[in-house]
Design a protein around this nucleic acid. Sequence first.
DNA 1: CTTGACCTTCCAGTAACTGGAACACCTATC
DNA 2: GATAGGTGTTCCAGTTACTGGAAGGTCAAG
Lengths: 129, 129
Amino acid sequence: MNIGDVAKRTHLPPKTIRYYEDIGLITPPRDANGYRAFREADMHKLAFLGRARALGFTIEDCRNLLALWEDTARASADVKTIAQKHLLEIEEKITALQDMRDTLSTLVTACAGDSRPDCPILTDFAKEG
Amino acid sequence: MNIGDVAKRTHLPPKTIRYYEDIGLITPPRDANGYRAFREADMHKLAFLGRARALGFTIEDCRNLLALWEDTARASADVKTIAQKHLLEIEEKITALQDMRDTLSTLVTACAGDSRPDCPILTDFAKEG
DNA sequence: CTTGACCTTCCAGTAACTGGAACACCTATC
DNA sequence: GATAGGTGTTCCAGTTACTGGAAGGTCAAG
């Protein structure tokens, strides 16, 4: 299977797939013409990576998760540790973004948004402290 | 005022302040010895930038907001447009992260996290479709 | 045999810094 | 005056996870 077909099946751009090979996440063999010849195992890995990335895991997390996935003697605790840590980070990000949203939302509401120069948003950004 | 003192006052690292000069957000004059000599106006700009960045505005947004702030003939509508757009992006990010959190949270809860290899997280990542 | 769609590699750019090296300067003390 | 340390300076490289583009090889169809 060539990279174009793999891209369609996994919904990952060819560039991304090549990049994943570059950094050693997959190692598809090559045909005589130099084209990557993806096996089922490569497709599975790419699908796995797509899922993990969609949940926001870093590439390094993905690398570790992939290794655990391939290690049939893994302990689920190792997987859970990675996932829990990531979950915490997500929650922290959500909280931070909610704070931003609340502040910004208040400012946007307070701004007339007309042709006059008076703007509570700018006033807030410029305030002391 | 030297960069170290400015850093303390604005809570921005010296590296960041130099970077902001590099990309033209501030243009402090220099002393005879080559040291940056920050004026009150530079401090105000840096404080403004710190606030805008803390709310997640991009540097380019900050550049535009700063220009509007300095333009006393601005229309508040221009500020509001930038802020509203950013607010939308924040809300989209929150939604995306909440989706991730919900999915991941379910998986983490389902994972025993013990020494056995069975792991619903990995199973989910590996599933078809 | 040409056309067009594929594939290849390699280089550069993205956002917003951050770390580190190599070197100048300034102040205070011995 | 020498020196030590705490500043400041510049410049280069690295970070994350790709993405765009150029230059060129390959393949199937007509």
